[in-house]
Amino acid sequence: EITKEQRALMKLILDAYNRHQIPQDVTKKLLQDQYSAEENFLLLTEMATSQVQVLVEFTKNIPGFLSLDHEDQIALLKGSAVEAMFLRSAQVFSRKMPNGHTEVLEERIRKSGISEEFITPMFNFYKSIGELHMVQEEQALLTAITILTPDRPYVKDHLAVERLQEPMLDVLRKLCVLQHPQEPQYFARLLGRLTELRTLNHYHAEMLSSWRMN
C-alpha cells in the first residue's frame, strides 16, 4: 500500500516532471523539413542544451536535492544528464506522435553524423523502453532515481544521496506492483533499464568524438 506521504512525494515529482519540458518553439524546429548538415548539428546541440536546462529545473524540485552539497549537486547532474536525456527521448519515441513525425525525427538523428554502431543501441534502448508501457509516474520517478545515483564520479557524500534515492525506489517498487499486478518482475525490469542506460552513457563520450570527426 502506498502511504499518504508517498503519494504526496509521487505527485510532487510528477508535477515537476510535467512542468519542465523542452519549450515548444525548440521542438517545433525539429519537424521542419529543410535543413543542411550544419543546421542539423546546431539544432541538435540547441535541443541538448535545452534538455539539460529542463533537467536541472526538474531536479531542483526533487525534495532534498538543493540541501545536498553544491558540488555534489553538480556531480550528480553531470553524471546523470546523458542518461536522463536518453530516458526522456525514449519516452518521446514511445509516445504516439502525429503521422510522419516519428520518421522525420528518426531521419534527423540518423543524418546527424553519429555513426551506425551508436545509433543502433540507442534506438534499441528507445524500443525497449517503449515495450514497458510505463505510466507517467513511473517515468518521472525513474528519472529522479537516475539523477540520485550515489556512485557517480566526484560525489563526496554518498550517504546523503542514498537517503534521497531510497524513498523514491520504495514508491516506485510499490507503484509497479499496483500498476502491473500480472508482472511480478516489472520493477526488476525497470531497474534493468537503468543498467542499459549506464552502458549508453559509457559510449556517449565516444559517440560525441565520432560525431565531431564526421
Binding site: 542544451t49 539539460v52 536546462q53 536541472v56 529545473e57 531542483k60 553544491h70 549537486q73 553538480i74 547532474l77 553531470k78 544528464a81 563520450a205 560525441l208 568524438s209
Partner: peptide, 21 residues
Amino acid sequence: PASNLGLEDIIRKALMGNLEE
C-alpha cells in the same frame, strides 16, 4: 574530459538561475 566542459557550464548556470521566473 573536454567534451563534458560545456555540460558542466550549462548545469552550473541553470542551478544558479531560475528559468521559471
